[in-house]
């Protein structure tokens, strides 16, 4: 009996929708150009989706506790710049150090949230501004080009497993890890509890302050991984280049992946498909061959259509 209930839950639309929609889009595009159904299409879709996926995963963990992190895309950008500056000299050590630093920055966001009760929107908007300046100042308003040790990082992008670049696999591994964290560990379950009903969680003696710090630290850490993905793809980093426009696609990818914006409902595995979908929309538009001027219009229609299809619509759920 319990198994049947679990099966019914699993096949509920909102679990199945994100991957279904992505494959449907792939199919439609394949009709226009059959190259997309082959290795090349998958390769392009996943390569573009990797940074968005990582940013979206971090965001979905924060959304899970009912907050929002506007600064995580900026964290990845600062990460990318720092990586581009330090990898030539310090190689792998640089990557570890930068990841640690970014996790700390995320944790600071969480700490301020936990102790001052400032709404996360305003808080992370402030940290976003500070990080933007950091990006400009640290990069000296230049484009930092990876001169040495390039292969250390760029292989992540050029090496492919089943036609899919390692940067994307990195995202998949992280998604699986977070799924396990949320479903099977106490920390993860606490996070979901805070997201579903924070007052209840406080009264149940859940250490909500720590939960928040951890959620934001995770966002910072995943942001750092996104920074690695950015540098892997571009071989360079700049404050206004690749990665500077990841915030909204990241949030959209989390939502298309079935994450609830009010908290408590996050499935990192579906966020993978959410990211693929969001990354794929401009590609699909290009492939279908829309007039350059009509592209924005079509992009808007696509986004609405795609999310209409993937939204969780369980009865009684309040959609905000």
């Amino acid at each position: 009996m319990a198994f049947l209930t679990k099966l019914r839950e699993f096949s509920a639309w909102h679990t199945v929708a994100p991957p279904l929609v992505f494959f449907a889009m792939l199919l439609v595009v394949g009709v226009f150009n059959s190259n997309y159904l082959g290795p090349l299409g998958i390769s392009i879709a996943t390569a573009s989706a990797a940074p968005i996926l990582l940013v979206a995963l971090g965001q979905s963990m924060v959304l899970n506790i009912g907050s929002i992190d506007l600064s995580n895309a900026a964290i990845s950008l600062v990460g990318a710049i720092l990586l581009a500056m330090t990898i030539p000299a310090f190689g792998v050590g640089a990557m570890i150090a930068v990841l640690a630093l970014l996790t700390v920055i995320g944790a600071i966001n969480g700490l301020i949230l936990a102790y001052t009760h400032v709404p996360s929107f305003a808080l992370t908007l402030g940290t976003l501004g500070i990080l933007q300046t950091t990006a400009l100042v640290v990069s000296g308003s230049e484009t930092i080009y990876l001169s040495e040790n390039r292969e250390l990082v760029t292989t992540l992008y050029s090496a492919k497993l089943f036609y899919i670049p390692l940067t994307f696999w990195m995202g998949v591994v992280v998604a699986v890890a977070y799924w396990v964290l949320l479903r099977l560990t106490r920390v993860g379950q606490n996070m979901t509890a805070v997201g579903k009903n924070e007052s209840g969680a406080i009264l149940s003696a859940i250490p909500t302050k720590w939960v928040k710090v951890i959620a934001f630290a995770i966002s910072g850490f995943t942001g750092g991984l996104a920074g690695i993905a950015i540098v892997a793809q571009a071989g360079s980093a700049s404050a206004s280049g690749l990665g500077s426009a990841l915030l909204l696609p990241g949030i959209a990818a989390a939502l298309v992946g079935g994450t609830s914006i009010s908290g408590g409902l996050t499935n990192p595995l579906n966020v993978v498909f959410g990211a693929l979908t969001v990354a794929f929309v401009p590609i699909a538009i290009q492939a279908i061959g829309f007039n350059a001027a009509a592209q924005s219009l079509v992009y808007g229609i696509f986004i609405i259509a795609v999310v209409t299809l993937t939204t969780t619509r369980t009865r009684g759920l309040v959609i905000k």
């Binding site: 299409g41 392009i44 573009s48 590609i283 699909a284 290009q286």
Partner: peptide
């Protein structure tokens, strides 16, 4: 992404 798409 769009350039990659055309190349495909």
């Amino acid at each position: 992404s769009s350039i990659l798409a055309i190349l495909a």
